[in-house]
């Protein structure tokens, strides 16, 4: 009887020891000096920006942001190593480049992504799409990398390299990509000696009244409503959001891009048909096309456009240029870590 009890206790002790061993097991790669002790990241949100909803499952950490930054700039994320996120999302151009490439700026406040809204949800959702579906990332390539196994461990602990963790790291880095230091922001913050010129002020008045009526889609502190509109670009619009929803009423609806740093993110429209801001304003002034799904907010549609005067066009463009934030496009903490 006593022997039996002893045997049972021994077995329990062995099981507990095994469990404890598992708890303190060597991290992947047998690197005993790897440490999982993430440091909380203090995210600075620009003044007047909306409350930021950070998923509880992906808290911001210094290690996570740094890993995301590396993945953003490293072609190793691509299944053939052909390109990095930064190949198309170029900092100098507010993390944009080609016509179809929407700028990466203040994406943390977005909930619908890509021109046609193919991905909706959180930054983690869009980044998972980018990693898994768009880049078709080869996890083996990352696992064989001299640094990434350790960097993933330091950011997320045990569990190795996964698509989800790569997306989480990228989402953390993207949350640091906040632009709120344009001339317009400085005026809002009433910084000494910063004022809008008369022309910029005229542009502001046009922008934020129904005379110009830009604000209904491009308004608020983010200069986008994060919704989808058919802005009367074509009489026979491309499918747009309709390709995702299957609804004929969504034909021609595309995501409203932010106007922050718009000066740097040409060419314009989802297909890049306009090379300059002047061409864009000309379109809203004289170039609207009726179609069954043209947005009611295109109030001047029956007249073909707003018919701005030359002065008004210049004023609008002058105001748009006050949204340029070069501290964002030169921010060293957003630049390549390599």
């Amino acid at each position: 009887m006593n022997r039996k009890v002893t045997t049972i206790f021994t077995l329990i002790a062995l099981l507990l020891a095994a469990a404890c061993q598992k708890e303190t097991a060597t991290p992947p790669g047998n690197e005993n000096d790897w440490v999982y002790n993430p440091t909380p990241y203090n995210l600075e949100v620009p003044a007047f920006f909306p409350l930021l909803d950070i998923p509880s499952g992906n808290p911001m950490t210094v290690q996570g942001v740094q890993l995301g930054r590396m993945l953003f700039y490293d072609p190793a994320l691509h299944h053939e190593g052909a390109r990095a996120c930064a190949s198309c999302h170029v900092q100098e151009f507010s993390f944009s480049s080609d016509p179809e490439v929407l700028p990466h700026i203040n994406l943390a406040w977005n909930s619908a992504f890509l021109w046609d809204g193919k991905v909706q949800g959180s930054l983690e959702d869009i980044m998972l799409f980018e990693v898994k579906d768009f880049f078709k990332a080869d996890l083996g390539r990352l696992e064989a990398h001299p640094d990434y196994p350790r960097l993933f461990y330091e950011a997320f602990g045990e569990g190795g390299i996964t698509y989800e963790r790569a997306a989480m790291a990228l989402a953390q880095f993207e949350r640091t990509m906040a632009s709120g230091n344009s001339k317009y922001d400085q005026v809002l913050r009433q910084e000494p000696g910063v004022f809008l010129t008369d022309q910029e002020l005229n542009g502001y008045d046009l922008f934020f009244t129904e005379e110009g009526d830009c604000f209904h889609c491009h308004g608020g502190i983010l200069f986008t409503d994060n919704e989808f509109h058919n802005n009367a670009l074509d009489a026979e619009p491309e499918v747009g959001l309709g390709a995702i929803t299957g609804s004929p009423f969504d034909r021609g609806r595309f995501k409203t891009p932010t106007l922050r740093n718009i000066e740097l993110t040409g060419p314009y429209m989802h297909d890049g048909r306009y090379a300059t801001l002047e061409e864009v304003i000309d379109f809203y002034s004289e170039g609207l096309h009726a179609s069954p799904t043209a947005d009611p907010l295109m109030k001047a549609l029956p007249m073909g456009g707003k018919h701005f005067t030359g002065e008004e066009k210049s004023a609008l463009i002058a105001f748009l240029k006050t949204l340029t934030d070069t501290s964002y496009t030169t921010n060293p903490s957003l630049s390549s870590p390599f």
Binding site: F48, F49, P50, L51, W109, S111, F208, T209, E210, F215, G219, G220, I221, L222, D225, N226, E227
Partner: peptide, 12 residues
């Protein structure tokens, strides 16, 4: 200060 409320602003 939510994105919903910001989209409803009346900025005239």
């Amino acid at each position: 200060n939510t994105t919903t409320n910001i989209n409803m602003e009346w900025p005239l």
